[in-house]
Simulated scan of single mutants.
Amino acid sequence: MIEGVGLGYAYGATTVVRDIDVRAESGRVLGLLGPNGSGKTTLVRMLTGIAAPRSGRVLLDGRPLDSFPHRELARQVAVVLQEPSGDLPMTVADMVMLGRVPHQAMFARNGAEDHRIAAAVLRRVGARHLADRVFTGLSGGEKQRVMIARALAQRPTHLVLDEPTNHLDIRYQHELLALIRGLGVTTVIVLHDLNLAARYCDDVLVLHEGDVVAHGPCADVLTAELLEGVYGVGVERLETSRGIQFLFHPLDAVSGPAGGPASVPASVPASVPASGRPERRAGHRKE
Rank of each mutant, 00 (worst) to 15 (best):
E3L: 09
V5D: 06
L7S: 04
G8E: 05
Y9E: 07
A13G: 03
D19K: 05
D21A: 06
R23K: 11
S26E: 14
S38Y: 04
G39Y: 06
K40A: 00
G49L: 09
R54M: 08
V58P: 12
P64R: 13
L65T: 11
P69H: 12
A74Y: 00
Q76I: 08
V79N: 11
V79G: 12
G86V: 09
M90D: 10
A93E: 15
M95V: 15
M97N: 06
H103M: 06
N110D: 14
G111K: 06
H115Y: 11
I117V: 15
L122G: 05
H129R: 14
A131E: 14
F135D: 01
G137P: 04
G137E: 15
G137S: 14
G140F: 14
M147V: 02
L152M: 13
A153M: 01
R155P: 08
L159C: 07
L161Q: 02
I170C: 12
E175Q: 15
I180Y: 13
T187A: 07
I189Q: 08
I189E: 00
A197T: 11
R199V: 08
D203I: 03
L205H: 11
H208R: 01
H215A: 08
C218D: 06
C218M: 01
L222C: 09
L222R: 09
G234V: 05
R242P: 02
I244S: 00
Q245P: 00
G256E: 04
P257C: 03
S263W: 06
V264M: 02
A266T: 10
V268M: 00
V268N: 01
P269T: 01
A270M: 01
A274F: 03
R277E: 14
P278C: 01
